[in-house]
Design a protein around this nucleic acid. Structure first.
Lengths: 204, 204, 204, 204
DNA sequence: GATGAATGAGTATTCATTCAT
DNA sequence: AATGAATGAATACTCATTCAT
């Protein structure tokens, strides 16, 4: 998707304003001003405000990696991989602006924008698949509905923690939740998969 | 808090419109029309739109129990308690409209509404404390930062799953995520607390 | 003009609010509340807000004496009479609320309310006539266009000083303006009338 | 201060409506219509109705000289100077629209608009200072609290006469009040200052 | 392409007035 | 008489969109 300089400026401006003011507080004039255009000029690049928001969402969801693909270096031990994902999540919690944009877009999607809903579906599939792949490699388990389910809950847990961070609920020190996360990744999940495997075997 | 019929009609109308259109799309005129009032009549019950939204939120967050307080019947076995909380969560995932309202309010809180932010803070504290209490009783562990941390993650997981539900990501069948939830509650968490306890002892 | 208790309460309330908030800020509901009535009840006493304002003006202008009629005690010396009028004016400058009401009504009259304009005309005639009478008696001059003109300027000066007081211009200490007023009344005006009289005689 | 055509149109429209209907009756829609704009267009020039009124006042009070600065031509005799100020006042009484605007603004200031109140304070100081300077030069007296006090009363008298004119009290023919004004300026005030000076000397 | 003035429908809010009770 | 809920037109203000230049 070729995108000229003007469009990029507009998108960047829109993203910034959405993060600062929310979609409700994002006006065309505000976007134009921040992008360095006149209000009228915007219409040379986009036919409507709606169109801009659509592209913001498109780009916004596209850019976010959330969970980086773990390097395909097979030599790495499980512990290293887990450490990497742990640090990745930690980093995720810091990215306030990006998370904010994400939740604002989710909000828009919920209101009924089906295009965005479809994009979210694809994105979540991608994110969860990546997490699942990491688990499969790190824990040496067979990929299947249960690995997917664990990955889904992991994704959900991250979303929920980010939400609490954005809402500034401050109900607990990160120190403790991090220890839980670390334990889950290094000991809880492995143990969990063992239980499942043995159960599955029991069934067989 | 006595609440007359007019206020109830207005709140109900506001709630419905928020769920359908989001807070952005919720106009006073819309509320008035759906409540069967003229625009001016609204002001007999509420001094501003802000005040209506505040009440919607107050009621909205107040009504939602999310995790029911576990009955104080000490005779119950851990398994029964866990089953109760499991079913409570299941039920939670069904309440689409209520969840939607919750996320819209969260959105508003993020944009900067400090009243709502404060409410959320209080609510999350309450919810998490309840979950923690259940864990303490069910698993027979001592209450402390780690029980709180686990409760916080549980809350986060639920939020994240509700979000995925509302976004209709449909990345996995509920059957599997439910099994993960069930395992976590019945075996994962107990084992997890054991690990922590033994670690704590090692330290000593 | 018989006036029942309800009407009096309403008028008093209206007067107070006008003084505090101006006519613009005077609402029927506000009047009703302060008068201890329901909004609807007002309409048993007055057919419209306009009618209330009209009565406020009627009463308002009627009550104000501005320059009290000097007692008709002929024994008094000029100096005493002048002292009385001087003190009357001093007192006038203190009556902030009453002055305020007066200027608000004048404002309304200027906007085009002809009834009020007529009332003001009558009132000013009355006020000026009183001042003139005092001058005639105190200075022992013959009543005529010139005594009237001096009285008119005196009235104007008082109005202007009250206006500056209400506007809080604070351009000078009352001490000095009072001395000017005192000199004018005790020496300036007598001298002034002498000059005129001699001029008039010159003409003859 | 560059002021484009649109702003000027709006100010002119606002001024006219204020004079016709008072500030209370001055609506944005009314201004827009008379200025030949749509309601929204107004906001390209002014950020609020408040801002328009502020500019009206700023211009309104700024333009009004009331008492022109007497030419600094030292050759002029006292009589000439006094004649000039006398004619200036005469002219003042004619400017109905301008005076009306002034009283409407004063009304607004009294209601509590602190910006306008401040402007009035500055303006009155300026006006009175000018009158005082004229007196000092014309009568050859030393500037001090008493010259200021006389100037203040002169200003007050003018205001009061303008008020009576606007209210159409018509209690006396201008012929007579003008004669009083003329006598005051040419003989009353000089004599008055003599009296004061001699009194001051008596004290010493 | 670019500008920014102009549009007009839409928003929350106010308030004199009405009317069923 | 009295209430106060209800009305609806009016108010200031916003903003996506258009269009002459």
């Amino acid at each position: 998707m070729m995108m000229n300089e003007g469009k990029l400026k507009i998108l960047q401006a829109a993203r910034e304003i959405i993060v600062e003011q929310g979609i409700k507080g994002t006006t065309l004039r505000g976007i134009a001003e921040r992008a360095g255009f006149s209000t009228g000029a915007i219409y040379h690049y986009y036919t409507s405000k709606e169109a801009i928001l659509y592209d913001v969402m498109d780009e916004g969801l596209g850019e976010v990696k959330r969970i980086e693909t773990v390097s395909q270096d097979d030599q790495k031990e499980a512990a290293v991989i887990i450490q990497e994902i742990y640090e990745g999540m930690q980093e995720r919690f810091q990215k306030d602006a990006e998370s904010r944009l994400q939740f604002y877009l989710a909000h828009e999607a919920m209101i009924g924008n089906e295009d965005i809903q479809q994009k979210f579906k694809v994105k979540y599939e991608d994110w969860i698949t990546r997490i699942e792949a990491i688990f499969v490699r790190a824990y040496g388990v067979k990929q299947g509905p249960m690995t997917r389910a664990v990955a889904t809950w992991t994704m959900a847990g991250i979303d929920g923690m980010v939400l609490q961070t954005l809402l500034r609920t401050g109900t607990i020190e990160p120190e403790y939740t991090n220890r839980v996360l670390h334990y889950l990744l290094t000991e809880g999940f492995p143990h969990f998969f063992q239980l499942i495997c043995s159960k599955e075997m029991d069934r067989e």
